[in-house]
Amino acid sequence: MTSRAATRPPSRPVGTVTRGTTNPNRLRRMDRWIAAVHGAELRRAPDPVAVDLGYGAAPWTAVELLHRLRTAAPHARVVGVEIEPARVAAARPYAREGLDFRHGGFEIPVRGRPQLIRAANVLRQYDEAEVAAVWERLCARLAPADGHSRGGLLVEGTCDEIGRRHVWVALGPEGPRTVTFATRLGSLNRPSDLAERLPKALIHRNVPGEAVHAFLRDFDRAWAAAAPYASYGARQRWIRAVRDLAADWPVADGPGRWRQGEVTVAWEALAPRRPR
């Protein structure tokens, strides 16, 4: 997708320093989803490299990503990338076999093309108009698709401080594929509670006339209609609501993932409709 010169790291990292807020176990829902849906691609790759982009003030998310990926792909390696040099220095004592930390940004300072780039809570501070260019740049760094692989995966999204509610977009080398909503069901009053965790590409689109607003409206209606199932627990209510939602929306997963408090929808169904 890019020339060798285009992928050569520049002299200065590309991007802006984030707040760096991080907590252990914050990204568990995203990690488990990645291991489940992308694990086969990681296992097939001769050198399955994953990048934890913008891991923050402490290295916990990169350490945990390695552990969770290796449950699916025992030879996976993780490189934590941070634009703030002091954070890289603080993380390096945690480096070990399969885990490294490097100074950099959106240029992704690793050799070759990674099989995974995870960017959690990184674009929250950017303007919506900047997101498409960042996505394009990161997707260009992914392992390409071929006859045996769909290529690498970029997972970009936002979660709350302790990881109870999370929404992310999954992108391949060709661009965005899906949007996943994930939550701890015991903390949920209604599905639209997840609106505050929409990624930057969608969070300002939760208004009448936009697809994501219609989706969350319909999800709330399905959740309300599934209220009788609450006597069997929040999980059964969620599963029923998603099953009803799938009649009108292109839900891309099945009950095995719904049971985890997740639902994944095709990107095209939720993509912004109105130019800005």
Rank of each mutant, 00 (worst) to 15 (best):
V49Y: 07
V265Y: 01
A91F: 08
E130F: 02
R237L: 09
L138M: 10
A57F: 05
V251T: 12
I83F: 11
Y55F: 14
R111N: 10
T264N: 04
R43V: 08
D52P: 10
G261D: 05
A72I: 11
E84N: 14
A6P: 01
R12I: 12
A246Q: 05
A230W: 02
M1E: 15
H204P: 01
W267F: 09
W258I: 01
T7Q: 08
P13T: 15
D127Y: 03
A195F: 05
Y55T: 02
G56Y: 04
A266N: 06
G105C: 08
S3R: 12
L185Y: 10
L194C: 07
R150E: 12
V78A: 05
R43H: 12
P199S: 13
I162P: 00
T264G: 03
D193M: 05
N206E: 00
G98R: 10
A211V: 06
P24A: 13
A266K: 12
P10L: 06
I239F: 01
F181T: 03
G98D: 00
G105V: 04
T61D: 09
L188C: 11
A170C: 12
A90M: 09
Y229T: 00
P46S: 07
L194K: 04
D220M: 06
E107W: 02
W168M: 08
A35P: 03
V169A: 03
H166K: 03
L185I: 10
R77F: 01
N121L: 11
A140L: 05
V167R: 07
E136W: 07
V17C: 10
R8F: 08
A170M: 11
T22Y: 08
N121D: 15
R28C: 06
Q260P: 01
F101M: 06
A5F: 09
P10G: 05
D220K: 03
